[in-house]
Amino acid sequence: MVENRPFLAFLTHLVLIAGVAVIVFPVYIAVVAATHDATAMSSGMMPLWPGAHLWDNLMLTLTHQTPGLPPFWVMAWNSLWMAVIITAGKIAISILSAFAIVYFKFPFRNLAFWLIFITLMLPVEVRIIPTYSVVANLGMLNSYLGLTVPLIASATATFLFRQFFMTIPDELMEAARVDGAGPMKFFRDILLPLSRTNIAALCVILFIFGWMQYLWPMLVTTDRNYYTLMMGVKRMAAVADADPQWNLIMASVVLAMLPPILIVIFMQRLFVKGLVETEK
C-alpha cells in the first residue's frame, strides 16, 4: 500500500465483512433451518439461531425417503458418478486431442481443431430438444452414459492442454525421440507427468461442473434410480408448498452443496488455477 490511512483500512474491512455477511447469509439461514425440528419451523417466524436438531435432521434426510424420489444416498451416488465420469472423460479426451493437435501434423488437423472449437458456441441449453432426441434414439436415456457422454466434449480443457503443451520446450520431445521414445511413450513418460498440476486443477473445476448439472439429468432421466441430487433437492423444495418440512429440505440442500464447497475451500489453490487457466 502506498499510504497508511487508518480510516481506509477500517473501511476496507467494513466492506469485506459486509460482503462476506451478504454472501454467507443465505447459506447460514439454510444451515440454521437444518438444525431445528418441524415445530420450530412451522411456528411462523423463522429462527435466526441454530437449534439442536441438526444430527436428527441429517439422519432423517439420509434414511427417510421422500415420496417420488429414490433414497438420498442413491441420488448422492448418481451425482458422484456423474461428476467423476464427466471429469475423467473430459480430461481424457481433451488431453489426447491436444496431444494430437500439438505434436502431429496431419491432414484435416485444422478442421478437427475447429470442430472442437465449435462446441464452445453450442451450450446444451440452447439445443436441448434435438440433443435429447439424439440421446433417446441411441437408447441412452436413463443410463450413466446418457447422463455423461453428451457433456464430455470440451473445448476449454482441450485449449488448456494445448496452451500448456505449447509452453513445453520443443527440445524435450526431440530429446525423448533421440532417446528412443515413440509418441505414446513420450506421452506417458514425459507429457502426462508434466501435466499433473493442470490435470489436478481441471479435476477440481470439472468435478464442480459435473456435480452442478441440473437441466441435462432432468431431461434424460425418468427412472428414479438415475436421479441426481440437484434434481432431488429441487423436487423436494417444489413439493414443500403443500407440506413444508423446511428443516429436512434444508438439511438435504446443505448436504447436496457441501462436497463441491469443501473442494473449493480445501483445494483453493488448484481451484483458482483451474478457473483462471481454463479461461485463457
Partner: peptide, 20 residues
C-alpha cells in the same frame, strides 16, 4: 530412419532435461 534408430545422442542448447 527415426532419430532413435540412428543411434546418435544429442546435447541441446537448453539441455532439454526431463524436469520431473
Amino acid at each position: 530412419k527415426e532419430p532413435a534408430e540412428r543411434d546418435v545422442a544429442m546435447v541441446f542448447q537448453n539441455y532439454a532435461l526431463y524436469p520431473h
